[in-house]
Computed example of a mutant assay.
Amino acid sequence: MTPSERDRILAKAALFSPPPAVLADGRRELVGLSREEMTQALAEIGEKPFRTKQLWHWIYHQGVTDFARMSSIAKPLQAKLAERFVVGRPVAATVQTSSDETRKFLFRFRDGQEAETVYIPDRREDRGAVCISSQVGCTLSCRFCHTGTQGLVRNLGTAEIVGQFMAARDSYGEWPSPRGETPRLLSTIVLMGMGEPLYNYDNVARAMRIVMDGEGIGLSRRRITLSTSGVVPMMDRCGEELGVNLAVSLHAVRDELRDEIVPLNRKYPIAELIAACRRYPAASNARRITFEYVMLRGVNDSEAEARELVRLIAGIPAKVNLIPFNPWPGSAYLPSTREQLDRFAQIVMDAGFASPIRMPRGRDILAACGQLRTESRRTRPVAA
């Protein structure tokens, strides 16, 4: 895909850009700044570059939001920093915990807009995944997805993306204790919440670089998975620059059906999407591409479609997550029967691909796959 196509996507993203990370009183948000930007911001108040390393440690390794608690920084400088900067978090407007211990946060940002974040625990291994949103609403309109009924309100900024993970850590107390004991319940990030991450690539990439920084949060790229519906021009760039795990929301094996249920397919059809998957630099037998496939009764769950899926992904280091459809108010689809799920999965497994059936988590609080949605609305016009 041409650089001009990537430029067009990035230019469109700018129309939905987040508000500036500056408070009404003029203080600047430090969360979300790169190391270079933080160094420049500190230089503007007469501080040396080594202060960046100190602040980075307190903000991202220790999780401290109050400058007065940054004990390696002298009190006069603590006061100076507090006058000019802030270390913030999105506000948890509501927090719901499912009967299966899944926790859903409705985060409210400084302009009043909201997005949902979900923590999915895996108690067998005493760890879990934080499902992070990249947009308020979604730029796509996949027919089976509740988020798609909301429409795109705006992109989330770097601070708002990384802030979701940090706020979830706050909720679980997962920052180093005075004795150095740090739990690892929040061990994985999946960019599978509200929005299409590759339509907000710059902010997502900046946030993930902060998350992966070894002197801060220090999460390995192997523990980050980005899910896309198939923004083909940005998939190559994501693989080259971030190298995180890739999940592809496929959901159909024929263009005519995918055009209907994943309208992005009209722009980037299945053949182009699969070709981009074959090129993805981080794909290997150790780091397989995940193909996500929501099973819709009588729509995409036939044995013939299972065989076509196997043909499409042949030769790609891959696994297939089969996702029973999670109903939401007003949805037009039904979940596949268990028998059909099992038959579909067996065909895929017999071809040599892992094909787990992902059991719904958090369905009772509308936290399952495809159920996220907020009441946020766009309040400013979009340029044509």
Rank of each mutant, 00 (worst) to 15 (best):
V294R: 05
A314D: 11
P263N: 05
E308I: 08
L81G: 09
R222Y: 13
L341E: 09
P269R: 04
K319P: 02
R179I: 12
T188S: 07
S177H: 11
H146C: 13
G352F: 06
T158S: 07
R184F: 14
T374C: 09
E36N: 15
R307V: 07
C131Y: 10
Y268A: 03
G230H: 01
K48N: 05
D66H: 11
L81C: 11
V130K: 03
V87Y: 04
P329Y: 11
T188M: 09
V130F: 05
C142M: 07
I261Q: 05
L185W: 09
L55C: 01
A286D: 14
Y201C: 07
V253Y: 02
F85T: 01
V204Q: 01
P76H: 11
T39A: 15
R254W: 12
R206D: 08
A318N: 08
R297H: 15
E196C: 06
F325R: 00
Q54K: 03
W56C: 00
V64W: 06
M1F: 15
R108M: 04
G330M: 07
D25E: 10
Y201S: 09
F50Y: 05
R103F: 07
E114S: 05
D364L: 11
R266D: 10
F16M: 03
E292F: 12
R89L: 14
G157L: 01
E36D: 15
P281K: 10
R377L: 15
S284G: 02
H57Q: 10
R377D: 08
E339V: 10
R124V: 02
I189V: 11
P19A: 06
G195A: 04
L156S: 03
V253R: 02
T97Q: 07
A384F: 14
G148R: 00
I45Y: 05
G173R: 03
A306Q: 02
L226Q: 05
A24R: 14
Y199T: 15
F325P: 02
R287P: 01
K53S: 08
I59T: 03
A368V: 07
P90C: 04
D122E: 13
P356H: 08
T39S: 15
R8P: 00
R373V: 11
P360K: 00
L296T: 01
I132P: 04
I316N: 03
V310D: 12
L366D: 13
L264P: 00
S227M: 08
D202R: 13
M194R: 04
A115M: 00
F291A: 00
V87H: 06
T94D: 05
S98N: 03
R377Q: 15
E101T: 06
S133G: 04
I365N: 04
M359Y: 14
Q40C: 00
M194D: 04
R222S: 14
S187A: 12
Q96Y: 02
S331F: 12
L152N: 02
L191C: 09
V262C: 02
E44S: 10
R84Q: 05
R103E: 14
G163D: 01
L33P: 13
T39G: 12
R169Y: 11
S17E: 14
N321H: 08
A13M: 01
E256I: 12
R143M: 12
P121H: 07
T65D: 15
S71I: 06
G214P: 08
Q164W: 06
Y293W: 03
D126N: 12
I210K: 01
A11Q: 14
V310H: 14
